[in-house]
Computed example of a mutant assay.
Amino acid sequence: MPNNKTTRAASGRGSIRQRPDGRWEARLTLGYDEGTGKRKTLSIYGATQKEVKKKMTEKLRQLDTNTYIADDKRTLAQYLDTWFAEFIVPTQKPYTITTYRGVIKNHLKPNLGAVRLCDLTTEQVQKMVRKLVNAGKAPKTIKNVLTVLNSALEQAVKAQTIQRNPAKFAKIPAVRVKDIHPLSPAEIVAFVDAAQDSPYYAPLMCCLFLGLREGEALGLAWEHVDFENCKVHICQQLQKDKAKGGQFYIQEGTKNGQSRILDVPDFLLEILQEEKQRQLRARLAAGPAWQNVWGLCFTDALGRCINPHTLWANFKRIAASIGLPDARVHDLRHTNATLALVNGDDLKTVQANLGHATAAFTLQRYVHASEAMKRASANRMQQFFDDNVKKA
């Protein structure tokens, strides 16, 4: 039978009672509405008096320290819709917008969408992670899901919508970095020779000898090639909207958001000059049908951008012809980095040329090359000893 006795908190700021349904309720006075003058109250519920007392004590502490935040009654799904519309769509790149939309639709809403924002716990987030693991989702996919959720909830904390971010302490499975497979010197020679007759020879050579990403190579414009000073400005990339029927577009900036200027070896400048002449002939042949609106260096016969899948298919055919059927276009970039490090380029130069955010990332990614560098350093020490100390 319900206990009708009411317990009051200090200074009359709250009271605890047992409801007719058996649950316990605490009511706190939050102050008075500045417009109407009416008293503002907060009700807290629990299964036992002890539970409610604990919750009330915490709320009183928050009120005393000015850290109290009223519970947001929206579901996580409702909050994500608002956050996505107000903070992601106006500020992010199309590729990021499409990616976030997919994560919210396919993972966050089905697993956590019905939970009220104010009730979301780390345990619930961790349960979602476990569910995704059991469903066979890749660690990188799970990491992306948590990245989106964490970003959304951090914004809620900044806006004082919630006190803490429950996704912050969720554990994710380790993301295994894929092994890289740079081409050997002999394979580089064979690849260059096999690619010479390909219509995609020039962009492939830019990937190999400048270390460009595919989107950077296919997004390279003639206005960013300085033939006189032997430099290229890498400041944009060709991207495609991930939505169904999405169109190609030029994205300003690179993967890490920063542009970079690269020195171009003479032989590659000659390849680019030949490509420019080839494109001029194609433009004259196409006449009014010419469509190179972005002034790209690498286009098809009508001036349209090259589809990355087309570049990939041609690369795979060339690679297979020299006995490398599993090679990827991105391996050309890895080859460039490995060659630079093994041949003695300093780490900061390689980092800058590749457009990595930090030298630590470059070192971690190409640890095999750094091992070769350390061995070469030891050999130089040995040579110095043999030539100078040992003879003394």
Rank of each mutant, 00 (worst) to 15 (best):
C235P: 07
E154D: 14
R164H: 15
G37C: 12
A85K: 10
V350R: 03
T29H: 09
Q239C: 12
F84C: 10
D300E: 08
E228F: 06
L339M: 15
Q160P: 08
Q291P: 07
A301D: 12
T335C: 03
S198I: 04
H368P: 00
R23C: 05
V148R: 02
L347T: 10
P199N: 06
K391Y: 04
D21M: 01
L218A: 03
M205T: 03
Q237F: 00
P265L: 08
T349W: 02
S377M: 09
E275H: 10
I250H: 08
S151P: 06
G35K: 10
A85S: 15
V329P: 00
P110T: 11
E228K: 15
T338H: 08
P185G: 05
K55Y: 01
A47T: 14
R8C: 05
I172K: 15
F209W: 11
L208Q: 02
A77G: 15
T48W: 10
H368F: 07
V225C: 04
V329M: 05
V389P: 07
Q155N: 14
L272K: 01
T299C: 04
Q160I: 05
R328E: 13
Q279H: 08
A217F: 00
L108N: 10
T36S: 14
T36K: 09
Q124S: 01
T7H: 08
Q49E: 14
A378G: 05
A186C: 03
L268G: 07
N134W: 00
V264P: 05
P185Y: 06
H330C: 06
R365D: 05
R130N: 15
T75D: 06
R283L: 02
Q160H: 10
S198K: 00
F315I: 03
M373G: 01
V350H: 00
G102F: 08
Q163G: 14
I16N: 10
L332R: 02
R101N: 14
R8H: 13
G246I: 11
D263L: 12
H368I: 03
P185W: 08
L272T: 03
P182T: 02
T67N: 09
Q78V: 09
I188F: 05
I44N: 01
G344D: 07
G344W: 07
